[in-house]
Each structure stands twice: as structure tokens, then as C-alpha cells.
Nucleic acid binder design. Structure first.
Length: 209
DNA sequence: AAAACGGGGGC
DNA sequence: GCCCCAGTTTT
């Protein structure tokens, strides 16, 4: 096992990838963070982002969102997968926000997980990006790379989330997702990782030839 | 624990 | 055309 140096890994990757992830656009905006996550379920950010931006031009709050007809909403987001289910979830959740939460997005894990379509990843993004609370959002990038690095040894994203809580300094709980997503998309890819150009290869436990 | 779900983009 | 990608719900 190579030595795991979290501080160094964060520093290197943070400088190596100057771009940012989609959710950063919605920092401090829980509703947009939530809806963009609902849209991006099992969909790549570069596909989701333009659709999300276009949707927010028409409806950037729950009130406007439910004033769109289901058909209008579907029309706006139909270029992404599961769009019918996603449209339904977005409108159902928006309706509940208005009826039960005074139009605001709740800020606890428990309340967020109660929504159809919201799992731990989405809830944690809403908490960390929308509300800027300490939370670890684990998607497939975070899960895969945290394991390849030998930082954790876990089978499910949920296990990864809990394991990371024990070893990641709290100041990196948000940043870890950002840099893992960028690293995962650009270098540490699922099937054919580009280990030859990897900036943190010296910290990695699972180098592919 | 494993499967089902549905669409875009790269080649 | 075929392969790659990606969270949540359901079985």
C-alpha cells in the first residue's frame, strides 16, 4: 500500500483541473442544486447542464416550476434520459416544497431523502452545495477513485460516504467530490484510466498499464 | 444483492 | 451500429 496523503492529493488535483463541476454554478442556491441533481441522475453533466440552464430561464423556483404544464416541462428536458420520470419528480417535489416547506428546500438529510428521486448523492449535494453544510456526496467517480487510491475499501457508494467521513478532513468534504468528478472524467476513467498522464499516480494503489 | 430504468455522444 | 456512461427504485 502506498502512503495516502490526502492534503497533497487535494492540492495537486485542485491545481491540475482549472475547470469546475456543474453543481458549483448553484452554490448557495438549494433549489437549483436540487433540480440540477434530479436532472443529472445517471446523466453526464455536459448533457445536463445546458438543459438545466435553459429550464431555469423558464422556471427557477418551485412556483414557476409547477406553473409549467407537465407537457411543457417534458418538452424542455426531453433530450435527457428518464425525462418523463424526472419531470414528474421535479413537479411533485416542487409542489411539496410549496405545500409543506413554504417554497423552500429543506436542509436536513432526512427530509431530503423522503422525496421520490432523491438519494444520498443528491441529498448530499444539496446540503454541501446548496446550503454549504459539511456533507460528502458520493457518485461513481468519488466511489471508484477513492477505492483506487486505497483511501477506502468499499463496495457501495454509501459505504464510501461513511468511510470517507472518518478519514477526510472536514474542510475537504465538499472539495473531494469536485476534484474526484474532474479527475474521473478527465483521467481516472472507469474502464480505461489514463494512468500515463495521471498527476497523482505516485499516490495510487491500482495503476493500470 | 442485483436488476431495471432510457437516452446522448464517441467512435 | 455498438459501446460507454450514470443514481435511485424495485425485486
Amino acid at each position: 500500500m502506498k502512503k495516502v496523503d490526502i492534503e497533497k492529493i487535494v492540492e495537486i488535483l485542485d491545481n491540475y483541473y482549472p475547470m469546475h463541476v456543474m453543481e458549483d454554478t448553484y452554490t448557495g442556491q438549494p433549489y437549483k442544486a436540487l433540480v440540477s441533481c434530479l436532472l443529472s441522475l445517471r446523466t453526464r453533466d455536459e448533457i445536463t447542464f445546458p438543459v438545466a440552464e435553459k429550464l431555469f430561464q423558464a422556471a427557477d423556483n418551485p412556483c414557476k416550476m409547477i406553473n409549467l404544464s407537465y407537457e411543457e416541462l417534458c418538452e424542455k428536458i426531453k433530450s435527457i434520459n428518464y425525462y418523463k420520470t424526472k419531470a414528474e419528480n421535479i413537479q411533485t417535489i416542487s409542489r411539496i416544497l410549496l405545500e409543506k416547506y413554504n417554497g423552500e428546500v429543506p436542509s436536513t438529510m432526512e427530509e431530503l431523502l423522503a422525496f421520490r428521486g432523491v438519494g444520498r448523492k443528491t441529498a448530499n449535494i444539496v446540503l454541501s452545495v446548496g446550503f454549504q453544510k459539511p456533507a460528502i456526496a458520493v457518485d461513481t467517480h468519488v466511489h471508484r477513485i477513492s477505492n483506487r487510491l486505497g483511501l477506502v475499501s468499499t463496495k457501495t457508494p454509501e459505504e464510501t460516504e461513511f468511510a470517507l467521513r472518518e478519514i477526510l478532513p472536514k474542510k475537504y468534504w465538499r472539495k473531494w467530490n469536485q476534484i474526484m468528478v474532474l479527475h474521473g472524467k478527465n483521467t481516472c476513467k472507469p474502464i480505461t484510466p489514463l494512468c500515463k498522464t495521471c498527476p497523482i499516480i505516485e499516490y495510487c494503489n491500482q495503476v493500470f498499464s
